[in-house]
Design a protein around this nucleic acid. Structure first.
Lengths: 147, 147
DNA sequence: TTATATGCAAACTTTTTGCACATGC
DNA sequence: GCATGTGCAAAAAGTTTGCATATAA
């Protein structure tokens, strides 16, 4: 689990400035479990800090991604969602309500090295997702798929 | 491995019409290993059939996706790429050159049922990706990441 | 002090949509 | 013949960019 302090220190060491905007964004992304979109992050942060612009949210998320501190999950509807959990895990995505949850799965380590050997790729990161219906949505009848 | 004939038959049985545009798109997507974008599909198909519009490519891909005949892989740069291999496999994505290759991995079955049980989700489909550098790009020095 | 970061608005990219015309069955 | 599909162009949605202003160090 990443700490806000570690991220801030790393940014500072790399010569990046620590602004209130960046702190607010980092704090929210690190703490949430909700895999938010850039717009969702912006809306929530604006409640406390109305001066934060959407462009700054995008720029900060881009910075954090380039520093490998967060992972960006692009979807085919053109949106992207972000998570601070960059460790080995599987995302389960409910295609009805859009919810995303993490499931730890350490057997992924063996899988990765096996695939790296077979393919001759050098692996840096991963995106493992299973799509289905969450427990709540399983019960609901009108299965209007989001994507 | 899916056959063009099967897909065409299924579409016909479901009441969809078989047009030259749809046949061309289905044929190309089924045969290629290249995980193309909608625009790439459009460009290639236009060489043979100049009358096919990009909108039709999108509409057909959407239809095929809804029929679970292809999988759509969205990326955070807003683009999507398509593959006809909907079976259990891992995509390895070269973040330098954008190449995507498939690696079969049947141990994914056990993984999926384990996660389904743990999470109470009902799983329909999957997207397992490993990001790194392909064998060629490993050797090249200027590692300009695409995303 | 000064290079970096922010905010705004405009630009860009990709995908979707509305509608008149064409066509598969 | 008629409901479905196509092509075009315009709209939408999400993200990026340019530039003047603000600010962290």
């Amino acid at each position: 689990m990443q700490q806000i302090k570690d991220i801030v220190d790393t940014l500072r060491n790399e010569g990046f400035r620590i602004t209130p905007q960046r702190i607010a964004i980092i704090k929210y992304v690190i703490d949430t479990q909700s895999h938010p979109s850039a717009e969702a992050i912006h809306k929530i942060i604006q409640k406390k800090y109305p001066m934060v612009s959407l462009a700054t949210v995008y720029k900060t998320l881009d910075l954090l991604r380039k520093m490998s501190m967060i992972q960006e999950l692009g979807f085919a509807d053109g949106s992207a969602r972000y998570e601070a959990n960059v460790g080995k895990h599987i995302n389960i995505v409910c295609v009805r309500c859009g919810r995303i949850e993490d499931v730890d799965e350490h057997s992924l380590s063996g899988l990765e090295s096996k695939v790296a050997e077979k393919s001759k790729y050098e692996i840096f990161s991963r995106r493992f997702e299973l799509y289905g219906h969450c427990n709540e949505c399983k019960r609901k009848k009108e299965t209007q798929a989001r994507r």
